[in-house]
Amino acid sequence: MVYIKVVTDGSPYGEPRLSCMSVGFLLKKKGDSVVWRGPKKNAMIRQFLSDVRWGDLDYLVIDTPPGTSDEHLSLLEHLAPVHSRLSAVIVTTPQAVALIDAMKCLSFTRTVSLPVLGLIENMSGYVCPCCGEISNVFSTGGGEEMARREGLPFLGSMPVDTELVTLLDAAEVEPTSNESSDKSFELLQRYQKTSSANLFTAITQKLIQTLPGVEQSSSEANTR
């Protein structure tokens, strides 16, 4: 069986260039749970890599669940033939409890010799919409400190952006592969207007610079 990816941008803005694949597209109802043990998840990951008609891609970004278990090991195994083109980004929140898990994640990448492009500190501060005061809801600076201590490039901090949270919630329309559907394209346009979009652009630029040999189409794995 060949899966066709779902395209999220397209016609009004030129050729579709952003596509994605998720088990979410394969569920009958959005409330269905996927109660699978490791081997079944492993098979799905293999199918996503081998049976999806990705076409020519410059970047493949892989979102993973928390932890260092079946999904992560399976990905590494299946992608072993292209290991030289794999790398990871670690995302953490600033509080100590999260940093401990981020350290475990880093140990994992070191054990499997996966290069880490850098660390991102998410939910770093929250700007009160009323008075503009910045509150560090999950403390702050922990990610930057960890990056410095571990000799990793620090890619940036992302404050909590309520606008983005709302935007992503509203995006939960029925997933369709209908290319003329404008709803999801609108999402991209609205995303560009959020304050997070600028910060992400800066992070992405840093990332692209650190990635070797972009022209030969690099793969990028996103861990945690």
Binding site: R37, S69, C105, L106
Partner: peptide, 12 residues
């Protein structure tokens, strides 16, 4: 605390 537990299902 830095050590990762890289276990698949059966071991967990």
């Amino acid at each position: 605390s830095k050590d990762a537990v890289m276990w698949r299902g059966p071991k967990k």
